[in-house]
Amino acid sequence: MVIEDPKTNKLIEVEKLPDGTYKVTIYDKKTGEKKTITMSKKDLEKLLKAL
């Protein structure tokens, strides 16, 4: 799943891993910076609600 946040000009890509956690990659379209973090479903839901 890919989500675009027009306010921050970032793309957020979410991928479910076999162990039940989620790999979240955040791309900054302005700088080209890429950050990848792994989080639980509960933390991911908090992140998505904040957008």
Rank of each mutant, 00 (worst) to 15 (best):
M1D: 15
M1T: 14
M1L: 08
M1E: 14
V2S: 02
V2C: 10
V2F: 00
V2A: 03
V2L: 04
V2P: 15
V2I: 08
V2R: 00
V2Y: 00
I3T: 11
I3S: 06
I3F: 03
I3H: 03
I3M: 01
I3E: 15
I3Y: 05
E4W: 14
E4L: 03
E4R: 00
D5H: 01
D5Y: 06
D5G: 00
D5S: 01
D5A: 01
D5T: 01
D5K: 00
D5R: 00
P6D: 04
P6G: 08
P6I: 09
K7M: 10
K7C: 13
K7S: 14
K7F: 13
K7P: 12
T8Y: 06
T8N: 13
T8W: 06
T8Q: 04
T8H: 10
T8M: 03
T8G: 12
N9Q: 07
N9S: 05
N9R: 02
N9M: 11
N9I: 05
N9P: 01
K10P: 02
K10G: 06
K10T: 13
K10F: 15
K10H: 07
K10C: 06
K10D: 12
L11T: 11
L11Q: 10
L11W: 04
L11N: 04
L11A: 05
L11H: 06
I12T: 03
I12V: 05
I12A: 03
E13V: 13
E13H: 11
E13I: 15
E13Y: 15
E13Q: 11
E13L: 15
V14Q: 01
V14C: 03
V14G: 01
V14S: 03
V14T: 03
V14W: 09
V14L: 06
V14N: 01
V14H: 02
V14Y: 09
E15A: 08
E15R: 11
E15P: 00
E15F: 15
E15W: 15
K16H: 13
K16F: 15
K16N: 11
K16W: 11
K16S: 14
K16Y: 11
K16A: 13
K16D: 11
L17C: 11
L17W: 08
L17F: 11
L17G: 06
L17T: 05
L17S: 07
P18L: 11
P18N: 10
P18A: 10
P18Q: 11
D19I: 06
D19C: 08
D19T: 09
G20D: 08
G20I: 01
G20T: 07
G20Q: 14
G20L: 10
G20E: 09
G20H: 08
G20W: 09
G20N: 13
G20M: 13
G20K: 05
T21E: 03
T21S: 09
T21Q: 04
T21W: 12
T21M: 08
T21K: 04
T21A: 09
T21F: 05
Y22Q: 00
Y22K: 00
Y22I: 01
Y22G: 02
Y22T: 01
K23M: 05
K23G: 04
K23S: 05
K23Q: 06
K23H: 06
V24Y: 01
V24L: 11
V24H: 00
V24S: 00
V24K: 00
V24T: 03
V24I: 07
V24E: 00
T25C: 07
T25M: 11
T25D: 02
T25A: 09
T25G: 04
T25K: 06
T25Q: 09
I26D: 02
I26H: 05
I26F: 11
I26E: 08
I26R: 03
I26M: 06
I26A: 08
Y27N: 02
Y27F: 08
Y27P: 01
Y27M: 07
Y27L: 02
Y27E: 01
Y27G: 02
D28Q: 02
D28A: 02
D28W: 10
D28V: 03
K29H: 06
K29D: 02
K29S: 05
K30G: 13
K30F: 12
K30M: 11
K30C: 05
K30Y: 09
K30S: 10
K30Q: 13
K30L: 13
K30E: 12
T31G: 08
T31Q: 06
T31E: 08
T31M: 05
T31K: 09
T31L: 04
T31W: 06
G32E: 09
G32T: 08
G32K: 11
G32I: 03
G32N: 09
G32C: 08
G32H: 08
E33Q: 06
E33W: 13
E33M: 07
E33Y: 11
E33I: 07
K34T: 12
K34P: 02
K34R: 09
K34S: 09
K34L: 07
K34Q: 10
K34C: 13
K34M: 11
K34E: 05
K35D: 13
K35A: 09
K35P: 02
K35M: 14
K35C: 05
K35F: 12
T36Y: 10
T36H: 10
T36K: 03
T36C: 13
T36R: 12
I37L: 14
I37Q: 09
I37D: 04
I37W: 14
I37H: 12
I37K: 09
T38N: 04
T38I: 06
T38E: 03
T38D: 04
T38M: 15
M39Q: 01
M39P: 02
M39S: 03
S40P: 05
S40H: 06
S40D: 06
S40G: 10
S40V: 07
S40K: 07
S40I: 06
K41R: 14
K41W: 15
K41L: 15
K41G: 09
K41D: 08
K41T: 14
K41H: 15
K42N: 11
K42F: 15
K42I: 11
K42A: 12
K42G: 14
K42E: 14
K42R: 12
K42Y: 15
D43T: 05
D43W: 09
D43G: 08
D43Q: 11
D43I: 07
D43F: 05
D43Y: 09
L44C: 04
L44P: 00
L44Y: 05
L44Q: 00
L44I: 07
L44T: 04
L44E: 00
L44G: 10
E45K: 04
E45C: 15
E45D: 09
E45Q: 07
E45M: 13
K46M: 14
K46Q: 15
K46P: 04
K46N: 08
K46A: 14
L47T: 02
L47D: 00
L47G: 00
L47H: 01
L48T: 01
L48M: 05
L48A: 00
L48N: 01
L48H: 00
L48Y: 04
L48G: 00
L48Q: 01
L48K: 01
L48S: 00
K49M: 15
K49E: 07
K49Q: 08
K49P: 07
K49G: 09
K49S: 13
K49V: 10
K49N: 15
K49Y: 15
K49C: 11
K49H: 11
K49I: 12
K49R: 12
K49D: 08
A50C: 14
A50Y: 13
A50H: 13
A50L: 13
A50F: 14
L51H: 04
L51R: 02
L51F: 04
L51E: 03
L51V: 07
